[in-house]
Design a protein around this nucleic acid. Sequence first.
DNA 1: CGTGATAACTTGACGAACAATCTGCGTGAT
DNA 2: ATCACGCAGATTGTTCGTCAAGTTATCACG
Lengths: 219, 219
Amino acid sequence: MPIPLVTQSVGDALAESLRERVLTEDIKAGVPVTEASVANDYQVARQTAKAAIERLVGEGLLERTAHRSARVPVLDTSQVKDLYFARGVIESRCYELLAAERRVAPAAETAHAAFATAAAGMDVAPIVDADIEFHRALVLSLGSARLARSHALIINEMRLCLAQVQSRHLLDATEIASEHETILRAIRSGDAARAGSAGLDHLAHAEEKLLEHMSAPRT
Amino acid sequence: MPIPLVTQSVGDALAESLRERVLTEDIKAGVPVTEASVANDYQVARQTAKAAIERLVGEGLLERTAHRSARVPVLDTSQVKDLYFARGVIESRCYELLAAERRVAPAAETAHAAFATAAAGMDVAPIVDADIEFHRALVLSLGSARLARSHALIINEMRLCLAQVQSRHLLDATEIASEHETILRAIRSGDAARAGSAGLDHLAHAEEKLLEHMSAPRT
DNA sequence: CGTGATAACTTGACGAACAATCTGCGTGAT
DNA sequence: ATCACGCAGATTGTTCGTCAAGTTATCACG
């Protein structure tokens, strides 16, 4: 069996960097991301920048219409609802299936512990990352590449959305941790129905707070 | 509200044509799809061909490693299982949710009827298309753009797989139609559990026949 | 107050070029 | 005969320059 090496082309690295900058709100929503500006910022050819931008468009992290600059999409409430809905469809079934196997991946345990650590700190970003990582690890532990891919697409858009809203006001780390714990316990005990519904509850809470926060301020 | 117009850039049209050729096995699995050959076939620049190829790679319809030509992936049994598994996760939950609303979209009814029409004919392709369309319509009727997108990705890979296998031997149109009918009835009657399990059964049958056919011949 | 023309900006697509890399094949040594 | 080596061909990665086409905003004009 060949041992795989990880190499990265300039295009790959560019797309990755761009994706991270979008997800961390380093590139803010609404401002145009022109091919020329990206090419200039990274000192790459316009074609290369174009390819990277198109890749992100394909992932839903940028949006663009013909002959106009790409922008980070601003998600309105209906899109947020769609995001949570789609995520709920996938995740709740995943938790049910995991419960049927009574299996919790070590990665999920790790992420769960990491969340507690992050929650102790003052920064918001690590908490969000740990939260996301927890759910990603659970879905990933089912071992389905396609499912993980679909989930990753949705999760990334959600990260985008969480980055846009100043999420520091709306997350209660203690509550999130306890909801995660509930999900894990249901999975461990083999209670599929409860695992699924706990997942949905968790999402519903997050969605509710997020929507509430989105409609309130004029920011 | 603006009325949207549909225009297509060369790149879009190229990607679409290429996708169709891949899905219809016009471009056969295993044979290299070089940028130069695509550029030459369609009389477009290599960059344009490259962009289209990269898009299909992103959709999982082509695979490629650095500095090597793209090829239509040959799906082995483990990949087929993954495909059906991921599809089952999404579709079964979708049918449950539709049953909760007791709602069957007209498009699904249309597709169901179209399946019967196609089944009467001798060609296999229309039957496969109608089958796919039936499931697509059901998922789409939930109205979630993200979910539809995830589902479409998986469905397309599955079309690829069905095109590769000479599916004429393994599908019993009558049986498929009756399984579809079972799903619809469960949804209409509001029986969520039965709708979900009928969906899973349907997929399990298809998967079983497909795997059986894949392991048998030496082709 | 619209209407239309103009200019600036941006993307769409092309063509050519060179580097880096993979592949296969022939050569030569063992 | 076989294996390692190296070389040539094919293919992608990336860049540059150029032109066409489309979008947006401005501004003069009727």
